[in-house]
Design a protein around this nucleic acid. Sequence first.
DNA 1: TCATTTATATTGGTTAACCAAATTTACTAT
DNA 2: ATAGTAAATTTGGTTAACCAATATAAATGA
Lengths: 234, 234
Amino acid sequence: MKIEVLSKIDNREVQNSIISKIRDLINFKNLEPGDKLPSERMLSEKFGVSRSIVRDAIQRLEFYGLLKSIPQSGTFVANLGVTAMNGMIDDILRLKVPDFKSLVETRILLELKTARLAAIRRTDDDLMQMKGALEAYSDKVLKGEDAVQEDLLFHLAIAKASGNSSLNTLMLMITPEIITNFEKHQVCDKGMARNGIKEHQDIFNAIKNQNPVEAKEKIKIHFKTLYQYCYNIE
Amino acid sequence: MKIEVLSKIDNREVQNSIISKIRDLINFKNLEPGDKLPSERMLSEKFGVSRSIVRDAIQRLEFYGLLKSIPQSGTFVANLGVTAMNGMIDDILRLKVPDFKSLVETRILLELKTARLAAIRRTDDDLMQMKGALEAYSDKVLKGEDAVQEDLLFHLAIAKASGNSSLNTLMLMITPEIITNFEKHQVCDKGMARNGIKEHQDIFNAIKNQNPVEAKEKIKIHFKTLYQYCYNIE
DNA sequence: TCATTTATATTGGTTAACCAAATTTACTAT
DNA sequence: ATAGTAAATTTGGTTAACCAATATAAATGA
């Protein structure tokens, strides 16, 4: 088990070193936006690693929008100059795996926004789905069962109702990490779930009534009880 | 070119269909948190696609924290129940590629937060890096050259100074997309860059003086002139 | 000389074969 | 019968061979 973790880290190290080598190559060859990178085969040979390793590194840079692979044509540097390219790659290489506190901070930020936007933009269909999620949550809590999943789905329904695809994606990305940490830290006993029903109901009503200020306020209350009560943050 | 785009969409379709098949399998077999998925070979055979396609789909679900691959051991479903699993996979499958307006909305949200946090938490080293980025930006603008990259790097320096790894990651993710859209829509002539120097300077000073309220305010001003002046949003 | 066509080489994507680690099974000795 | 050990199988990861589409070079005809 220990070894497995180490090997994963090693893989990350290898990938990072390939990424930095690609950066060096771009600098050395003075590649500008739109220019073509050497082929994957040449890169793998030059770097002394297999082609799939190179492909993974390229894929990661593609995720951050720094490269663009076009089938049967080549890999091209994005429309960013060398300065921005270097700066961003350095940032990417330095990125640390997020800690729990960062995640919570970010989640609250995102949810305050999604709730506000949902109150403004929610369609009737959005409302219907939120209502379904809310009822599923309440049922579980009233039966005394664990309702973490239903809780989660309610919040994701809000994110969807916000009508902002970017926010929706970001919420989906950080949510599982949040859940995992919740369970790892044994956050949230079942006693406080009773409050949860009321709080969720309030949020739902605010969004239903299209009151963005109230929606934001209710979310704030929800997270206040949630995080302060369950977990000593700082 | 047209064909290339279509093929990419096709690939996405294929991957989505594999993901939904994995979801169906989890439901059909009543797999619970921690249970092992059938091996990649079996899945590829069952779904009638190559193993690498299956691997890509698994990798995507792993990115969202829904699966976890362990070398020489298997792929396991995360600590989420079937309800949350189904809900999240449906969300992922429905995710649309973000539009420009969503991106801008999200960027402003994130930057308001990072600036505020940076004012609170910035170290002297953070300040040094921000100063470097700011001077590089000013120099370019005063020389009448394009300074989009330096602008970007200044904002990323703020994100780094926020001390929140999650926010930093999210900023890195949406920034290139923003830049691309900026250039595509021909946003931001060089005339307004003069204002930019002053605005950046103000933001920097607020963070230097550790004044979070002012930092947030200055960011707000910056984006107001930026987006309202350059681009008619809604 | 230049435009058009054809042939060749190159490219990212895909498939299949291979590897080492990990798990399971079979077997042996006590 | 059981604990310990070794052989065999299964697993995700890696490498190498293959493919169709693309871009480039050569050839052809006007």
